[in-house]
Amino acid sequence: MAGRGRAGGTNVVSVADPAANVVAALRAAMDGLDPARVVGGVLGLAGSGAERAGLMAGEAWRSAGLPGRPSVVADVLVAFAGATTEPDGAVLLSGTGAVAARIAEWEVVQVADGHGWLLGDEGSGVWIGRAAVSAALMALDGRGGPTVLVDGLAPLGTSADAIVSAVYARIAESGPAWLGTLAPLADQVARAGDQVAGAILDDAARRLTATARTLGRHGGPLVLAGSLLTEPTELARRVWAELGDDTRPITARDGAAGAAALALRAAFPSAELHRRVIGESA
């Protein structure tokens, strides 16, 4: 790979300034490279509102000084292409958001959830973070059982009022995606045996697998994508247990390589090139 760049999230629903993050990632990836040599691009973006995402991506592409216009696809398709050269299958993603999708001939043909932090994304990092804060508040005011989550949220405040004020302030500053930064706390506390946090992750795992099963039988692999399912998290362990043996799950690898593979497929329809880009064994 000639270059790589990293930046913040790009979900047009839950991130405060997704366009700036796209521009930052593109500029970092192109550092030291000639933009004139770029012949195409694929951006895999999360979030509801495809038209908004497309407009944002086009503006970001131009702001980064790149020629032409990129193809904008769903992040689930990029995750799928980065994990397998098979044209059909499904994706279950849990990161900041959560969604499942069925893929047929490199097209997203069915989607379940992915409705954003307020209306869906069940089992996502934001969903888990919000549930963790709610559980801590319930413990503090006597509506729920004791949980170590209260101690974990101490940097935000030691009273319910202080925690509520801090959370709303962080969301106003950084967008609802900030709640996803609390998901690792819930994961860590659940791994240590906290029953309240464990119940949150059990619920998240059940909701995620139910979303995936909504797609029905699809043939091909089920790709588990998103940081909460590709890292060795407690949530990932519970999702694998919920899935059981009736699926063909594989873990997503490099989304950037998946986007590059899709761009290559548009110019040179070759499974071998795709395999080399994503590092898949023949």
Rank of each mutant, 00 (worst) to 15 (best):
Q188A: 15
G44W: 11
N11K: 07
V39F: 04
A282W: 04
D187I: 01
A259S: 08
L93V: 12
V22Y: 11
D151R: 13
L26K: 00
P155A: 04
D161I: 00
S159N: 05
L224H: 00
V108A: 12
A205I: 00
W61I: 00
D202L: 02
L137W: 12
M56C: 05
A257D: 09
M56T: 13
L26H: 05
L93G: 03
N11D: 15
A81C: 08
R276N: 08
A19L: 06
A169L: 04
G198S: 13
Q110E: 15
L77Q: 09
L201D: 08
L273P: 03
W127C: 07
R27P: 03
E173H: 06
I171G: 05
N21L: 03
L215V: 09
N21V: 00
G144K: 01
D254Q: 06
W61G: 05
W106A: 02
L93P: 10
D151G: 10
V196P: 10
L43E: 14
R191G: 09
A139T: 12
H218R: 07
A135K: 01
P269K: 05
T251C: 12
A261V: 07
E234Y: 12
E107R: 15
L66T: 00
R265E: 09
P176I: 01
A79K: 01
S63T: 01
I171Q: 11
T84N: 05
A190E: 09
L235Y: 03
D121V: 03
A57P: 11
S94M: 04
A135Y: 06
V76A: 14
A132K: 01
Q188G: 08
L55W: 00
L156F: 15
A83I: 01
R4S: 06
L66V: 01
A263T: 10
P67R: 04
G125V: 04
A154K: 08
T230K: 09
A50P: 15
I278R: 06
G47C: 06
E51T: 11
V38W: 14
T233A: 08
A210T: 14
L140R: 00
A100H: 11
L228A: 07
A104V: 11
D113S: 05
H274G: 10
A20E: 15
A204E: 08
G47W: 06
A135Q: 07
D202N: 14
F80N: 09
P176D: 10
G47K: 00
A271D: 14
G41K: 01
G44D: 09
M56R: 00
A79N: 08
L93Q: 14
P232E: 11
V189C: 09
L235V: 03
A267T: 07
V196Q: 11
L153R: 04
E242H: 02
R237E: 14
V108P: 15
G216F: 09
W117Y: 15
R213Y: 06
G175C: 10
V108K: 14
T158K: 13
R52I: 05
A162S: 15
L43W: 10
A261S: 14
